[in-house]
Design a protein around this nucleic acid. Structure first.
Lengths: 349, 349
DNA sequence: TGAATTAATGTAAACGCTTACATTTTAATG
DNA sequence: CATTAAAATGTAAGCGTTTACATTAATTCA
């Protein structure tokens, strides 16, 4: 049978309460006793059962992480930030993807209600009002990632999609392009919408007429980037530059360009959003918007831990939007492609 | 207070044993009673606490996954396979990276000993003998991923690195190259070693003399690929082709080539190993070895679940090496770069 | 030195479930 | 119907901790 607290108590000639006090470093215990118990525990390689502890304390030291998908540069890096933070606070991570096809909501509820975790980091860029119900039902604190900005009243972290899109659009404009197209992200996706708004506003602010025929729907996938770009290029009225709402779609655009013999940026400039690793090895290197994704994860986790530990009021709304920055490659026409110092650029995050 | 089994029992006018039977669909319960309990449970949104259940059953329905790193195409895909399988069996995943700098062993022990998980999938390509101790100490079943092949006596899943390397080397040879170099992976890494062996044996079998000066150490990172390749290219005696031990290093090679104005494959052919996504968007597309990585994850998980459920003897050694296949791009000189049907190729796994 | 503190330890009741075993109901059988 | 078997339910003992409260030992102080 597995060795438990009783065993240690018996072997040490004390009560289990004392053993517990020692294992938790809590409450007064004579040095001598403590030493002895510690030694015996060590000899027998005893570790308090987290499960039993969880039952008694109503705390699991585990954080739930719910992402739309697991496979993706983007999500990986989020997890990385989360993991680093969790690890440094001795918390465990329970990850789960709400794979679009499954019933996210149900999964989430189960997760939270079950008492399996002390708190949840939830990324659901496509959820709107439903999310209020879900979160309010939960007794555990929840931090939202990259959700609709209207989600105030809740705690959320995200990146400043609007500003990033605005900046990169202005960058295109600064090149002198007037006819600028965009392949958008999913219709009901908070981030996609913000990027679109930034795009439109940048045009407007710079006195460029917004032409709806230059804007084509997409869904953040390579395929939709490929098709969207192809379609845009096939139109009568040609654009001079295209803002792909994310890098994945930009990759699709590169492929499409290759296919229809269009040269980037000579024939058309292309920019993206996200600054994922593959964009850095495209030729020419993609001009895109860098988002501090690892930091996003760690910040969210950090805040969640504070909510759990009561350092901040879990009820208090809190929103943070991390700022973005441009990464200039050669795809926008900047002729910056060979200036780069390759290695650091390729490995930074 | 959170609603528990007692509450449901009281409200339903039965004992907690009956409620438990209903919630677990186990043991005889009158239809009528069952219905009633189910309804009440539903109304109150009652879900048995997994923690308490875990204590009582000594089972957590959670699987621990320990990877060297979280951030990497490679690991992502592994997790994906694992996740899919876990999900379809209603298991939860506790992931953790043993970040090289941390004490893997300790973490692993803690993980397993703690009773937090029912089993563990462990990827530790750099561990050798130590692993026996660790695993034998564990009362939970463990499945090894991509470890040293000598690990028999244990349960492990991996890919056939040797054969993959052998095949791709022969492919280079079939192009007529005689002077073939290699940038190796980390010294004490099972996979790296197997790839090196496959390389050497392919040369030997084809009557090509193995020249140690053509082989340069690396560590699977972009940087080491960059430097290794640069060094190789800088040597007096030039190679005609290089086998980079993984795709990441191949990416580094591409960058280096660009830097020193060498054209792939005209000046030198380059091939990789892993078939990660970014390799598909390199120009020219990288010729590499595809490994069924998602499948690897799901197979490992599948087997682990069988061990846990007693469908297979957890003590019985078991080894599987999934087979690899070549992905022909243009980097080997095959002039295959434009033949590809882009979209499927870019998104398959 | 005895009373009053304070430190050290112990007792036992949770925590929310599962499950072996006991008991009661119901159904089947002769 | 009484008897027996089967079905339905209940009782209570875990599972391995934590922790409020009680008890005992050590220390301090007038």
């Amino acid at each position: 049978m597995r060795i438990n607290i009783n065993e240690i108590a018996r072997k040490s000639g004390v009560s289990i309460a004392t053993v517990s006090r020692v294992m938790n470093n809590k409450g007064p215990v004579k040095q001598e006793t403590k030493q002895k118990i510690l030694q015996i525990a060590n000899e027998l390689n005893y570790k308090p059962s987290p499960i039993a502890r969880g039952l008694a304390r109503k705390k699991t030291d585990t954080i739930g992480v719910i992402l739309p998908e697991l496979v993706d540069e983007f999500f990986m890096n989020i997890i990385r930030g989360i993991d680093e933070e969790a690890d440094s606070h001795n918390r465990y991570l329970m990850v789960s993807s709400s794979h679009s096809q499954r019933n996210d909501v149900e999964k989430i509820l189960e997760f939270m209600g079950s008492g399996r975790v002390d708190g949840v980091i939830l990324m659901a860029p496509s959820m709107q009002k439903e999310i209020y119900d879900i979160i309010s039902k939960s007794k555990r604190p929840v931090v939202l990632l990259n959700c609709y900005p209207e989600m105030d009243g809740l705690v959320s972290f995200g990146i400043d999609n609007y500003r990033g899109a605005y900046l990169i659009t202005e960058h295109l404009i600064s090149h002198g392009y007037k006819k600028i197209g965009m392949i958008k992200g999913p219709e009901i996706n908070a981030e996609a919408n913000a990027r679109f708004m930034g795009f439109k506003d940048a045009l407007k602010k710079n006195g460029i007429n917004y032409d709806p025929s230059f804007v084509i729907p997409g869904d953040f996938s390579i395929q939709s980037g490929y098709h969207g770009f192809s379609r845009l290029m096939g139109q009568q009225d040609k654009v001079e530059a295209v803002f792909m709402a994310n890098d994945m779609m930009a990759i699709g655009a590169y492929e499409a360009a290759k296919n229809i013999n269009i040269t980037i940026p000579n024939d058309v400039a292309v920019v993206g959003f996200d600054d994922i690793f593959p964009s850095r090895i495209l030729t020419p290197r993609l001009t895109t918007v860098h988002i501090p994704i690892v930091e996003l994860g760690s910040r969210a986790m950090n805040y969640l831990l504070k909510m759990i530990d009561g350092e901040v009021d879990p009820q208090k709304p809190h929103n943070e939007a991390l700022s973005t920055g441009l990464v200039i490659g050669g795809s926008c026409g900047c002729n910056n492609d060979n200036l780069r110092n390759v290695l650091p650029a390729l490995t930074q995050n």
